[in-house]
Amino acid sequence: MELQISHVTKEFRDKKAVDDVSLTLTPGVWGLLGANGSGKTTLMRIIAGIMEPARGEVLCDGIPIRTLGERYRDVFGYLPQEFGFYPEFTVKDYLEYMAALKGLRRQETRTRIDILLEQLTLLEVKKKRIARLSGGMKRRVGIAQALLNDPQVLILDEPTSGLDPGERVRFRNLLSEFARGRIVLISTHIVPDVEYIAARNAVMKDGRIVAQGTTQELVKPVAGKVWSCSVPAQKLAEYERSLRVVNLKCGEGDRAEIRYLAEAEAVAGSVPAEPRLEDLYLWLFPEAGR
């Protein structure tokens, strides 16, 4: 299966949210990185088929998703960034309701719900009202509904938001296993979540894809631009103002370890560091680090 996003543009009254974006998604996990307002959610809504682009189209195996209609939604799972529940729903009620909306038969519904409740460790709370669950559990319920119809294309907008580290690891492992032979697109601000599992990433800025590729390919622009050094703790504020500090770690005594981005060594005694995806993110979005 292949999802082709072809010259997609979406404008709102005051800005171009998505500007001539072209991307071909193949089976595996794809990360979509970008700052707030870069157009990720709009692009995801267009791929989900719930928002019409002003220009361009999204094709699934060469057929526009508009033409496919219900057949596309049959093989599609979507978790929006902001989603809610009807107040009277328990976890099981909600999943059964969504299963009906997805057109699943009763027997298939029961089987899928049992499997997903176990995989996402929601068995103990299946009869609890969703409104009473923690934020992380609510997010897992949302992920469960996206997986109900065993989709071939899974679009997740900020799926790990609100999950604790253990839950994020479990979720990453679940996705990695799930993504075999399927297309999974994750948009997130938590760069490590895609760094560990995404085979390929795309970076969006101001509605455009500014970079795409494997992690190794993406970090090439910042290769040789990532430095680490030890600095006096009293001068930290000064360095934070003058340098693009990616990471700061207070050591023992009066020293601190900083990791910063610069074209050349900016602090005496700096050593080059191995670039990571987070470095690229902050190189492209310097305002995100402030």
């Binding site: 939604r73 599609f76 979507y78 929006p80 809610g84 009807y86 969504m98 909306l101 997805k102």
Partner: peptide
């Protein structure tokens, strides 16, 4: 006209029946 206030619309819209 349910669904608006509960932020269910996106998930309902993206389902098979819509």
């Amino acid at each position: 006209g349910r669904g608006r206030g509960c932020r269910m619309r996106e998930t309902e819209l993206a389902s098979r029946y819509g």
